[in-house]
């Protein structure tokens, strides 16, 4: 089955070391992976297992210590600002903490306008821009008219995260990296955010890389799952394979640790 699908993003021997001497941490340790086009991939692991570091390397926000990343079959080259900009048209992100994802000194319009400009819409007439922004806000169930001229901190966490999705809607990247997009917002808004992410993926047909520590969430959203432990990928496969028949002890533990309601939640295992 894998043969038919195009590899979208892949990494080989990807490694990141922070610090040196006694401070040295091997955050990501020689990981190999291939994410296929149009797929939803989850990267699951406990705190400090290197998920965010891996995501930042994929995004080109930090440089790998070792290894290489290939995008759409070619080794990625982001050596100049121009090339980076080109790359970022294809790969975008939603971060964990909506409260710190916004520049609190800029109005909400600026966030969305940036996206229109990035898609080459700098010279569009103002009405057209407003129309685009209204459409994007409508997609995430926000009213642009109510948001315009507001500052991000005047929104709730859930609204902020939805605005992030509206941003992606405007950018239409090929790959979206969502780093724990729901862990800082309450369970009630979580369903909304997840729904919208799924709708968005269907709408613009992108590859979604979903990072989480909650394996239940990973199972719920994804086609394939990568399990990370101490910077290494210890297990990967389709979601059903990994979660219903975990091979690794670590995976089994992660599954065990999520509170259940239909099965017994075994507290004795920690």
């Amino acid at each position: 089955m894998a043969e038919e699908k195009q590899v979208c993003l892949s990494g080989k021997g990807l490694t990141k070391v922070f610090g040196f001497g006694r401070q040295r941490t091997l955050a990501v340790d020689h990981v190999d992976f291939s994410f296929y086009e149009g797929e939803i991939v989850s990267i699951v692991g406990e705190s400090g297992s290197g998920k965010t570091t891996l995501a930042k390397m994929l995004l080109g926000l930090i440089n790998p210590t070792e290894g290489e990343i290939a995008f759409q079959g070619q080794v990625r080259d982001i050596s100049s600002q121009k090339k980076r900009k080109e790359y970022w048209k294809n790969i975008q992100a939603i971060f964990q903490d909506p409260f710190s994802s916004y520049n609190i000194f800029n109005k909400i319009d600026a966030v969305l306008l940036d996206c229109i400009h990035m898609r080459g819409g700098r010279n569009l007439p103002h009405e057209k821009k407003v129309e685009l922004m209204t459409e994007a806000c409508g997609f995430v169930n926000l009213k642009f008219a109510e948001l315009t001229n507001k500052y991000p901190f005047e929104l709730s966490g859930g609204q902020m995260q939805r605005l992030m999705i509206a941003r992606i809607f405007l950018l239409k990247p090929k790959v979206l990296l969502a780093d724990e997009p729901t862990s800082m917002i309450d369970a009630c808004s979580r369903a909304t955010i997840l729904d919208m992410l799924m709708d968005l993926r269907r709408e613009i047909g992108m590859t979604l890389i979903f990072i989480t520590h909650d394996i239940g969430l990973a199972y719920f959203v994804s086609d394939s799952v990568y399990i990370m432990e101490h910077g290494k990928i210890v297990e990967h496969g389709s979601a059903d394979e990994v979660i219903l028949n975990p091979k690794e002890v670590y995976t089994r533990r992660l599954i065990n640790d999520v509170p259940k309601i239909y099965e017994e939640w075994d507290l004795s295992t920690v």
Partner: peptide, 25 residues
């Protein structure tokens, strides 16, 4: 009831459940 609709657990069958979100604020 709405809160119940947002529960996600790693158990078989969960993937087919449609999450129900409560609209509005």
């Amino acid at each position: 009831k709405g809160l119940m609709g947002s529960i996600i657990v790693p158990e078989e069958g969960v993937r087919d459940v449609k999450l129900t979100a409560i609209p509005g604020a």
